[in-house]
Write a protein that binds this DNA or RNA. Structure first.
Length: 290
DNA sequence: AACCAGGGAAGAT
DNA sequence: ATCTTCCATGGT
């Protein structure tokens, strides 16, 4: 068992990230003791569960990372630091939005970090499964999917491998109330990843525009899904999912509109929030979460 | 019961 | 290229 500390240099709302992580029934959190268990898949395919804890929240919290997997401590810690983006200076982000029309929201919701999904492939599957569904049913589906085809280690769930999903039939997912389309999108995409036609690790090195092109060509993956993946799987700073219904509703509320704003107006406005559009999106989502 | 949900493909201009 | 319709399924 090892334990490593990390002192945040500025603000970081860990309690908020816990709440977000807790939305996913597959993720094990504890609010009283302020921790979350993170499933980490190592290169040798070892599956390790890492406990991430925080003392304090928002104002210079101190994080601890613990695991009883005694090898690979440095790799595991780097992984966790990357997932939680602890080295990102959120004070800079906060400063940037002062003087914009989001200043009030950024004041109310300080130190909102991007917390990356735990698995590149799982993140993509989750985005496809969640397309166009209300959150409750969306999580019902992704949870069924992982609990049937993934693997549980010490109470935490690992997404299945693309190789495993590639072997399924569409009817296997239809039984779990996937629509025919969704079953096709999930399995066909997994097959492309399993046979090497799509290399997510390679794609992860490309700039946003290129990722939009390469992933956007895949049937079942549109702009919303790629943007989601760029934001939540890769943790990129400057994505704004204008197609997202939550974003549209948040802007409708902020601007006191009767109808949801047009996508073009949204994109135009969001240009002014570059290079931190992802943080604008997160803070807007936060403004309609209760 | 009608409309919505943290979209996307296929068809029609 | 852009607009419209259909796809599916549960939630409110």
């Amino acid at each position: 068992m090892w334990k490593e500390y990390y002192h945040a240099s500025g603000m970081y709302d860990f309690d908020y990230s816990l709440r977000r992580l807790d939305m996913d029934p597959l993720i094990r959190t504890n609010f009283k003791e302020r921790w979350v268990d993170v499933p980490v898949r190592l290169d040798d395919n070892d599956k390790v569960v890492v406990r991430v804890n925080s003392e304090g929240t928002t104002e210079k919290p101190v994080f601890t990372v613990m695991s009883d997997h005694d090898e690979d401590q440095d790799i595991i810690f780097e992984n966790i630091r990357n997932i939680f983006q602890w080295d990102k200076d959120l004070n800079d982000v906060h400063q940037f939005f002062q003087g914009t029309e989001l200043a009030m929201l950024f004041h109310r919701y300080q130190g909102t970090p991007i917390v990356r999904d735990f698995d590149l492939y799982g993140s993509l599957m989750k985005a496809i499964i969640h397309q166009q569904l209300n959150m409750k049913f969306a999580y019902t589906l992704s949870t069924r999917f992982v609990q049937k085809y993934g693997e549980e280690v010490d109470g935490s769930w690992f997404y299945p491998t693309p190789e495993k999903v590639a072997e399924l039939e569409y009817d296997d997912l239809r039984e779990m109330q996937f629509s025919q389309r969704k079953a096709e999108y999930v399995i066909d995409t997994s097959r492309k990843i399993a046979n090497g036609e799509l290399d997510l690790k390679q794609i992860a090195k490309q700039p946003n525009e290129e990722v939009l092109k390469t992933l956007g060509k895949v049937r079942g993956i549109g702009p919303w899904t790629v943007q989601n993946w760029l934001l939540f799987a890769l943790g990129r700073d400057d994505l704004f999912p204008a197609a997202d219904i939550g974003i549209q509703n948040a802007l409708k509320k902020m601007w006191n509109l009767d109808e949801k704003p047009a996508k073009k107006d949204i994109e135009k406005k969001a240009e002014g929030w570059s290079p931190y559009r992802s943080y604008a999106a997160l803070t807007l989502w936060r403004s309609i979460e209760d």
